[in-house]
Design a protein around this nucleic acid. Structure first.
Length: 103
DNA sequence: CGGTTGACCAAGT
DNA sequence: GACTTGGCCAACC
């Protein structure tokens, strides 16, 4: 039984440990696709889970260059949350060299 | 089933 | 350095 692309994104996102981040691109590539947009769209369309009791840290997902892109609550909130997790945000960007989680 | 869309990305202007 | 264009692919209408 194959899950939808979106659900697979959640699965991968769930694997990201606290204090680490990943990129939309990486996730899409892991799914053997280039549907970067589909990953982000999945988050927006669905309740992100983590707010509803699920464990889908959508805030741990950043852009391809560690740059914060989009977030339903606002990028500002996203930065705050990441900082709480131990990820330093510099100029609205994350240091992927230190915080990017290798899937 | 065809067309629009989207929390992207890379390159061009 | 900021904005525009094209491309990618799955989900949604």
């Amino acid at each position: 039984m194959k899950k939808s692309f979106n659900e697979q994104c959640y699965e991968i996102l769930r694997k990201v440990p606290k204090g680490k981040v990943t990129t939309y691109k990486a996730i899409a590539e892991k799914l053997n696709s280039k549907a970067y947009r589909q990953v982000g769209r999945a988050m927006n369309k669905n309740p992100c889970g983590f707010l509803s009791g699920g464990n889908v840290p959508c805030h741990r997902v950043v852009g391809s260059n560690g740059k914060l892109v989009g977030f339903a609550h606002g990028l500002k909130k996203k930065e705050e949350m990441l900082k709480e997790e131990g990820v330093s945000i510099i100029n609205g960007k994350v240091d992927l060299g230190k915080y990017k989680f290798e899937l």
